[in-house]
Design a protein around this nucleic acid. Sequence first.
DNA 1: CGGTGGATTCTCT
DNA 2: GAGAATCCACCGA
Length: 180
Amino acid sequence: MAAARALIGWTLLVDGVGGPIVEAEAYRGRDDPASHSFRGRTARNGAMYGPPGTLYVYRSYGIHWCVNIVCGPVDVADAVLVRALEPVQGVERMRARRGREPLTSGPGNVGQALAASPLLNGQAAELLPPQRRRRVVRTTRIGLTKAVERPWRFLDPDSPYVSRPISSAPRGVRHRSTHP
DNA sequence: CGGTGGATTCTCT
DNA sequence: GAGAATCCACCGA
C-alpha cells in the first residue's frame, strides 16, 4: 500500500518500452476481498506470492492483459496494479501495438502497449527510480465490486495520462443526481 | 463438471 | 448511459 504510493514516478520498462508510472492501485494479499489472492494461492495468482518486484500478469474480462508489480515479501501476495504510465520510451512500438490513443492510460491499455502476456508473468520487473518529485493523490479504487471503499488508488494529479481524474467515481457515474 | 463473473475498453445512441 | 466483446479460473455442487 505504501508501496503503491511509492511506485508513482518510477519508470516501468518491458523490453525497453514504458515510462513513469502515474497511477497505481494496491491489492493486499491476505485480507483484501478485491485481491486475486484473497482466497489463497491458485494456478493463476501464483506469481503474486513471489518476491517483491515480480510481475503478475492476468487476463481481464477475457480480453485485456493487466500488469501488476508484487510489492510484499515472498508468500504475502501484496501487489500493485499499474493503471497508467507516461509513454516515454519506445513510443513508436507502443503506437504500433495500440493502434490508437491513448497509449498507456488504463490497465488494459498499459498491458497492450507493453505487450503484456503470460510470458511476462513471474518475471522480474525492470524499474528505474523517479527523475523528479511528483505530487501524489489517493482515492478509492476503480471498477471493483468488493471492498469498493478502500482508498488504495494513487495517482499523480498533474499527469495528463492518468486513466481518470481525481474523482473516484466510475466513469459515467454522476456524483449526485439533480433532483430536489 | 457446468455456470458465472470479472482489478476493461470501445462504440453507439 | 448502455451494451458488446470474449474467455477461463474459480466456485459450488
